[in-house]
Amino acid sequence: MTAPQAGASDSSSILIVDDMEENLVALEAVLGSLARVVRAHSGEEALKAMLRQEFAVALIDVLMPGMNGFETAANIKGLDQTKDIPIILLTGAAVDPNYAYRGYTVGAADFLVKPFDPWLLRTKVNVFLDLHRKNRQLAEQADQLTRLLSVDVPTQPPEEQHRLADVERQLAQVRHMLREGEKTGVTEPDLADRIAVLEKAVGRLVEGAGR
């Protein structure tokens, strides 16, 4: 497994999983400029890497000795810590027509046949990188709101208690949506709008407390 690449644009990371070193080298050459790239040579190694750090997306070869790509994807989706990581499965040209279906049934987000178009691969991976960055920004904003509520807003008079409770309830909903992702059916712009409204509400509470 390689260390994360230096010079990546931010802390987002991509995991690439293949038992053949030349395939890993090719993937890293295509994706290395987008984000940090971490290599794994087996499904078992991939699972260990995911338990050590966060990844925006994982690209996994289907045909590997031991734990194959389908089994690796199923294990990733079966763990609470890793179940939300998007997976792109990769396979050779002589592909079984059932592979794509099997990939989606184990939770893969996409399925590509090698040799893949480098531009197409970069485009697909970039979508998941952007999503990861936006979700992380929203989570950071939610954390800031939590700190404001716990530190900057002292005990409120009775008439403000209801407003404070409402803001805390809405913030809890936002955190739930961030955790559950696409299951909630709420988009990033929706969450960003909700957080902006909460920021204003917290600002008013802080301002009122300082009077």
Rank of each mutant, 00 (worst) to 15 (best):
M50S: 09
T72M: 06
V57K: 03
T91A: 07
D84N: 14
G107T: 06
K77S: 07
F55S: 03
K83C: 12
N68R: 05
E71I: 01
A94K: 15
L89E: 02
M64W: 11
K77L: 02
M64E: 07
T82C: 02
M50F: 02
F70G: 04
Y101A: 13
P97Q: 06
A58F: 08
I60H: 09
Q81K: 12
A74K: 13
G69R: 06
T105E: 15
V62C: 09
D61F: 08
A94Q: 14
L90H: 07
D96C: 02
A56T: 03
G78C: 05
T82G: 07
D61P: 04
T105D: 15
D80G: 10
L89P: 05
V62N: 08
T72I: 08
A100T: 05
R52T: 14
L59Q: 04
D96Y: 03
V57G: 07
L89Y: 01
K77A: 04
A93R: 15
M64A: 03
A100G: 03
V95H: 13
G69Q: 06
T82A: 05
M67Q: 11
T72S: 08
V57Y: 08
A94E: 13
E54C: 09
M50T: 10
G103F: 02
G92P: 06
D84I: 05
L89I: 00
P97K: 09
I76A: 02
G69L: 00
E71V: 07
V62Y: 02
I60T: 12
A93S: 15
G69M: 03
R52H: 14
N68V: 08
D96M: 04
V95R: 13
V57W: 03
R102C: 06
G78Q: 05
I88C: 06
D96L: 04
P97N: 04
R102M: 12
M67D: 06
T82E: 03
Y104Q: 07
N75H: 14
N75G: 00
L51Q: 11
